[in-house]
Design a protein around this nucleic acid. Sequence first.
RNA 1: GGGGGCGUAGCUCAGUUGGUUAGAGUGACGGCCUGUCACGCCGUAGGUCGCGGGUUCGAGCCCCGUCGCUCCCGCCA
Length: 601
Amino acid sequence: MHPYRTKNCGELRRSNVRERARLSGWVHRARDHGGLLFIDLRDHYGLTQCVVEPDSPAFALASEARSEWVLTLTGPVVARSTDTVNPDLPTGEVELRIEEVAIQSRAEELPLPVFGDLDYPEETRLRYRFLDLRRERLHHNIVLRSQVVQSIRRRMTGAGFMEFQTPILTASSPEGARDFLVPSRLHPGKFYALPQAPQQFKQLIMVAGFDRYFQIAPCFRDEDGRADRSPGEFYQLDVEMSFVTQDDVFAAMEPVLHGVFEEFAGNRPVSRPPFPRIPYAESMLLYGSDKPDLRNPVMIADATQVFNREDVTFKAFKGKETVRAIPAPGAAAQPRSWFDRMNEWARGEGAAGLGYIVFEEENGRTVGKGPIAKFLSDDALSRLAVLTASKPGDAVFFAADKIGRAAVLAGQARLKIGSELSLTRKDCFEFCWIVDFPMYEWNEDEKRIDFSHNPFSMPNFDRDKFLALDLQDRDTILGIKAFQYDIVCNGVELSSGAIRNHRPDVMLKAFEIAGYSRDETEQRFSGMLNAFRYGAPPHGGTAPGIDRIVMLLADVPNIREVTMFPMNQQAQDLMMGAPSEVNPRQLRELHLRIVQPEKKS
RNA sequence: GGGGGCGUAGCUCAGUUGGUUAGAGUGACGGCCUGUCACGCCGUAGGUCGCGGGUUCGAGCCCCGUCGCUCCCGCCA
């Protein structure tokens, strides 16, 4: 007989009765009745109840066992009597009658119980991650992650993509996030950087003629964490394709994303390809966000003109750059205090407040109520009702400010209304592409033109006219769109992507517009620019976040729930004790000297 | 870098207006119990109330500082 097991803890069934079996696993729970001892033995595959009576020679040793000890139990599989079957357990029709006990490992008193599904503080969970990972929910999430990655690989390979590995030790890139640096031993004073993404490598893979690339790629960024963003490192499905248009990239990704989500969504419906394509400007207007949650039916409208009419005398909104109207269907049923709380919330977000109008029916016609309704003529009110598709029983909130701030506040109010009024659908996955991002934006602080998103994107603009652009023509430049797109699911940005700028002349001009001299651009991106001078195919790609895909499928709000060994918000690994000090010899070899920051007085 | 919340037994938490010896559940340890599957019953041990200072006759509770965790803003091409 195998020294550890002939079956795992999840596979014994009625058909195995009368077989002799050996199981190994952790003591999930022990119930000692004095004259009868039950041990629930658990492994990766499941749970099996094992039982022993006092007249058995195994009883003494078995009754020593405590939670999370590792045991090997041997004995005959027996059927449970009908009144003792456990229907909640796949193995619940049988039990193992213990005849032999081997204690493989003992466990000290647990800092984190494996049994039960209570929530425990992050610090404990991270410090004892190996215990937390034994628990059912987290164990299941990690298994799901593995299956999702496997499914992605299968689908990508099936679609003709090849997976290639790109370097982990590479050069610091001057743009983007803060790099993680690795000091060079052989080259004093020089550093490698961990890749923020394999961006330049995957483009070089296209220049090298490999046509369709993907990688489940680790990415490193030394930026602060958030609940949905681990500090330091994360994984993305990095994709690049040659000789493609934007639509070709969408057509390649949609079946993969739809397929993976469908495979693991259970009964939750998933958007069918083709996913909606929403221009950036339209998304900012209708949803107040560049990552709209389409499960929320509320659509924002622009009401600036209504409030500037002569028959509208609400002074607080007069002369505001923008007034956005956020419908709140059915909100008339809410008490006054609900509207007050919405206002308070808006003030907490740094806004002056949210005006609102409630539509009611009076003598067969629709009238407006609420603090600001009296400043609007009947005609203006009905115009608002049309704009916001409101009917009696509905309300409308208003966000008035500069265009950017009003849009964002309206977007936040939309999310709040959606969740507070239970309008946002649950248990479904709504995808969309956001397209036509602006290539550039105006940096008001530094009074200059910045790249709006990815500087390597191809401008969606006539090439000759682009090359001839006058840098003084700010309005034209700020109006240029890029072949740049995001894929969004349920209000979560899964990735951005782009058709890349593969032409050195256009790239130099694009950077010149953003304030980089030709020499500077040549120097900073010499690797890629050089490659583009030897025959670069038109190419483009995208890179959906693996962690976020699994978060959505596992329906958890925190990225640590789908990561095997995550760091905490301070970018520390509490279990391994990283980061840690290193010994002086290591520092000498690396030509480093530590300068501690001065303590605050 | 900034803002909010939290910090009490191994673990999860309660602790009223500042007032006697800081409690419960769970886990640990010991005892009883032959059908449980959150087994049940009895008992025992277990505390630097994050840390430092202050106010007070008296501080887990109030004040100041500090540390840690977490959520958010900044940041994340």
